[in-house]
Nucleic acid binder design. Sequence first.
DNA 1: TGGTGACGTGTCAGTTTTTACATGTCAATT
DNA 2: AATTGACATGTAAAAACTGACACGTCACCA
Lengths: 188, 188
Amino acid sequence: MSILKYDEGMSLRIALLGLLTTSGPSSGYDLAKRFESSINHAWQARHSQIYPELNKMAADGLVTVEEEGPRGRKTYTIAAEGRRELREWLLEGTPSRSIRSEGALRAFLLPTLEPHEAAARLRAEAEVYTARLAELEALKAAKASWKRPGFGEHALELGIRQTRVVRDWAEETAAEIERAAGDPPGGE
Amino acid sequence: MSILKYDEGMSLRIALLGLLTTSGPSSGYDLAKRFESSINHAWQARHSQIYPELNKMAADGLVTVEEEGPRGRKTYTIAAEGRRELREWLLEGTPSRSIRSEGALRAFLLPTLEPHEAAARLRAEAEVYTARLAELEALKAAKASWKRPGFGEHALELGIRQTRVVRDWAEETAAEIERAAGDPPGGE
DNA sequence: TGGTGACGTGTCAGTTTTTACATGTCAATT
DNA sequence: AATTGACATGTAAAAACTGACACGTCACCA
């Protein structure tokens, strides 16, 4: 009751509480969409995970629900207890270094291929990241829909920088592999 | 049998095959340790997940096992079929953008705190990342134990850059929040 | 009127991952 | 001789997560 375990596995709850804070009262549907856009580079969840969790959170008093409209929409609002829990997680929680990124895994293993294959694949990856970067930059330019003015920009900026770092690494590593293999690229 | 689904959930297998490629024949115990060190910023797995998976992989012919020593140690070696599978995943697999990072989630949500709390917390995070950076740099300097000479450096370099980018972002964001709040830090 | 697509919530089976339990060897120290 | 800590492997229950199924509304267009 008093000893709280913010060990692991709170992440979905926390993410939901965070989105409810930054975007104001939302439906599960809204939150699911937001997982696909704003918070996508940090955490993900499908609606099949979100809906049950929201119900549990309501039962635990972290959020309040309001049934609304003819489509059965439910609007969730963060409650005082939810705010407290989010705050406590941010202040007391031990920063876990847990990361799972299939992209990083791929990058990690690409150099196990033959040099020219590896380089080609790395360049392809770099292109993907360049495209993603463009998306994020566009989002930054649009920077709409943040309840607290100026809030989401910091997060977006981190996403941009992280994407750029992988892109640049992929390009440079491709070049280095080609150089080491004495197998320079065609045109340049 | 012939139609392979490299959709999702192959990651553990792939990571294991990758480690077996870069580090040579290893025991489950070795691989578990390697998950904690080299590949940690891309994927993680506990021994309780690794041991059963290795057994399945052996049953599927991706690796060969050799019982060894009095402590019941089993040494796994990647087989031709395993090499093929890893290669195919790297060449054909669709790059998924799925990322789960509790650290990124925290960074994302920190600005929901009061400005001075957020800034303080961001600076604390930055310190953690600085320490982690030092670890990685030390590892880079030591750069031992890579079977294929020069292999792991690329991956390590990516880890270093990613860590640095978060560290710098945290520091800059802290400064910006303080500035915006008209609440400059003590000394400077 | 019928179709499509966004809105909106939910469940369930199966897979992946964590936490805890369980067992035993070997080398070095006390 | 006993303890400690690294070595070494496993299992089982529970939690987290995915993918598919399922149902129903509303607005717009043909």
